[in-house]
């Protein structure tokens, strides 16, 4: 290839990349650097220019009880939602794997929560969890179990959020497992059947290991999702009672837009970015690269 042609191709490539690159720099890289920069300043509505404080914001947030609490909440939320919805997703995918008419309807029934906005889901579940008239209260009333104050009790609010999230996400993960099952050759099962292996044995020794790549992929989506989706908190609890349902991103929102504290919000954003980078580093170095970027 001669020099002139190569120059032309370079110019063309960067021209093609330009629109996407500008957006990437403006809304991913610049904001990340801005967060790091602002995290060294005491900066709020009273001090819009900012006062340099070094790493004081960091030492502050790691002593802030609420921040530590929302970190812990996020961990509990992830531990509560991720394995549960993944297990349910595998179960559903195996049960509904055969493409019959009935199964296709049932798949739709489990998948539709994916298509509905979280803000609407939160509204529906707000009614479900409502004392006295909510679906759950009525159901528990008929089987004579005492009412549970789902959203107003510090011990119940997190399980309530987790339950709703599992309901919303299981069907979404199910379709990845359905796709994963399609890739398992059927003759593997035939030989297992000939040898009279039990269903559980086949699952444990064949299906589950063969679905491992899918599981790893879903795991990453699920963990990231548990960090970046907080819409339901706005409608259901506002983070309460006593921050029992507050999560990192929602607390950042509160700091930035309710308390007007730019410095602290930036500092917490840096921590959140670090957490996401750790998750992806784990994905990149520990898990197989091919799974992600086939």
């Amino acid at each position: 290839m001669n020099k002139k042609a190569s120059l032309r191709i370079n110019a063309a490539a960067y021209l093609f990349l330009l629109p996407a690159l500008i957006i990437l720099l403006l809304f991913t890289y610049y904001p990340m650097l801005l967060s790091v920069y602002d995290s060294f300043f005491l900066k709020d509505n009273l001090r819009p220019q900012g006062v340099f404080v070094g790493i004081e914001n960091y030492s502050y947030i790691f002593q802030d009880e609420v921040f530590l609490k929302v970190m812990k909440n996020n961990l509990i939320f992830a531990i509560g939602t991720v394995p549960t919805s993944m297990a349910l997703a595998i179960f559903l995918a195996i049960k509904l794997n055969k493409s019959t008419r009935l199964n296709s309807w049932m798949r739709t029934a489990f998948f539709y929560p994916t298509v509905i906005p979280l803000i609407v889901v939160a509204n529906i579940w707000l009614f479900i969890y409502q004392p006295d008239y909510g679906l759950f209260s009525r159901f528990f009333h008929t089987i004579a179990v005492p009412q549970i104050p789902w959203l107003t009790n510090i011990d119940w609010v997190m399980p309530a959020m987790i339950l709703m999230t599992v309901w919303k996400e299981a069907g979404f993960f199910m379709i990845f497992y359905l796709a994963g099952l399609q890739n398992i050759p059927t003759h593997i099962y035939e030989s297992a059947q000939m040898e009279g292996a039990s269903g559980w044995y086949v699952f444990r020794r064949l299906t589950f290991p063969l679905l491992m790549p899918t599981s790893l992929f879903v795991l990453i989506i699920a963990i990231t999702g548990s960090v970046k989706t907080v819409d339901h908190i706005f409608v259901m609890t506002g983070g309460g009672p006593n921050n029992a349902s507050n999560l990192i991103l929602y607390y950042i929102y509160q700091n930035r837009f309710s308390f007007g504290d730019i410095g602290l919000a930036a500092t917490m954003s840096v921590v959140l970015i670090a957490i996401l980078l750790l998750i992806s580093a784990f994905n990149f170095f520990v898990l197989d690269r091919r799974i992600h970027y086939r």
Binding site: F27, T28, Y30, P31, M32, L34, S35, D38, T224, V227, K228, L249, I252, Y253, N255, R256, F257, I262, A265, A266, S269, L272, I273, L276, L277, I279, S280
Partner: peptide, 13 residues
């Protein structure tokens, strides 16, 4: 890995 959805505070700026 770092979607715009989590960069709400700086992106507002």
């Amino acid at each position: 890995m770092i979607p715009a959805d989590v960069l709400i505070a700086p992106n507002y700026q």
